[in-house]
Amino acid sequence: MASASLNDIEFRAVTKTYGSVIAVTDINLEVPKGAFLALLGPSGCGKTTCLRMIGGFEQPSEGAVLIDGREMNGVPAYRRPVNMVFQHYALFPHFNVEQNIAYGLKQMRPRMASGDITRRVAEALEMVRLDGFSKRRVHEMSGGQQQRVALARALVNRPSVLLLDEPLAALDKKLRSAMQIELQTLQRDLGITFVLVTHDQEEALSMADVVCVMSAGRIRQLGKPQEIYDHPADLFVADFVGKTNRVSAVMEADGATLRLSDGSAIPALERQRVASGEAIVAIRPEAIRLTRTASPKDSVFSGTVTHRIFLGSSAEYAVTVPELGDFLVTADRRTLNENDLIEPGEKVFLAFDPATAHVFSASSAA
């Protein structure tokens, strides 16, 4: 009987321990059918442990993992409707492409007819745009081609869920960007659930439609990429997802005024209000306008450029502001209204709209 579950994956109060080490704690998570989920976080945050519990390579110490509404606790990996693409692909070097892809089909019971295996392998190769490569040896292929072979091998069994364990980490930047687009296209075409583990914020934001930010074995925020970036739940998320500038401040007793460490004040909107006392104001580098002349419209600080990184269409500047510290500013060259880049040593002004800032209690900085 088919499951009526709306979710392909569920974690219900899942905890995983290794002896005295707690890898993940009380994880509750629902992944809708056909979603592209990214588990994002620093090394040791528990994201790979979660992936391995979905795949059946680890079992929960407490709680339950469900796939398509069925509890998977105790079910071995080979009996789950799941396949995984590993970081280093784990292809068989003594097999050609066709043999690598067909391997899983040949292990199925009852046995598939050889004609059906050949047809399924051809379909998988076409899916990843490797038609004509069936007899090619793995060592004769580029990194991107090997990754496609690993994808084809994982998809040929038609899993309900595809797990991706940092599959792009070994690729160069240009190829990684191309493969990100290919994976998105493939996921949309197939309509199956993808779960990606990564520590690369740009990769998670650009590929997934749901991002789960993890730290110290817990979920810090779950949401759409834009929501995660524009409305971080706490200071950890603001720091980890993208870049941010921290400014020490005090929320005054009126709850509507933030007093910065240089003595200046900026208004706090309703959504920015935290308990009175020490606070942290977080400002994204692209939310700051860098100019050679002061603007009276917004909060303005003066400082000195100490470093510049030229990025082509934009540039990143490190600016030291007395009593406030160092700021990172990303400036689109077209918005500078200047024919030349600002040089280190120049005096500049930093302007930002206080409404673009995120405010957190200093006690939540851990």
Rank of each mutant, 00 (worst) to 15 (best):
M1T: 08
L6W: 03
F11L: 14
V14Q: 02
T17V: 13
Y18S: 10
A23I: 06
V24F: 08
T25P: 01
I27K: 07
A35K: 09
F36W: 02
G41K: 08
S43D: 02
G69R: 08
R70E: 09
A77R: 02
Y78V: 01
N83C: 07
N83W: 02
M84V: 06
V97E: 00
E98N: 06
G104H: 01
Q107L: 15
M108C: 12
A113C: 03
A113W: 04
T118E: 11
V121L: 04
A122W: 02
M127S: 05
R129N: 12
R129Q: 15
S134T: 00
K135N: 12
E140S: 14
S142L: 13
Q145I: 05
Q146F: 08
R153G: 02
V156E: 02
R158A: 05
R158M: 03
V161D: 06
D165A: 07
P167F: 05
L171Q: 01
K174P: 01
S177F: 11
L196M: 09
V197E: 01
T198S: 03
H199Q: 07
E203A: 10
E203W: 05
D209R: 08
D209Y: 09
V213R: 01
I219G: 04
Q226P: 00
Q226E: 13
Q226G: 13
I228D: 01
P232E: 04
V237E: 08
V241E: 01
S248V: 07
A249Y: 07
A268V: 04
L269I: 00
E270I: 10
G277Q: 12
E278H: 14
I283R: 00
V300Q: 11
T306L: 09
T306H: 10
A318E: 13
A318K: 12
V319P: 04
K347A: 15
L350P: 10
A365T: 05
A366D: 15
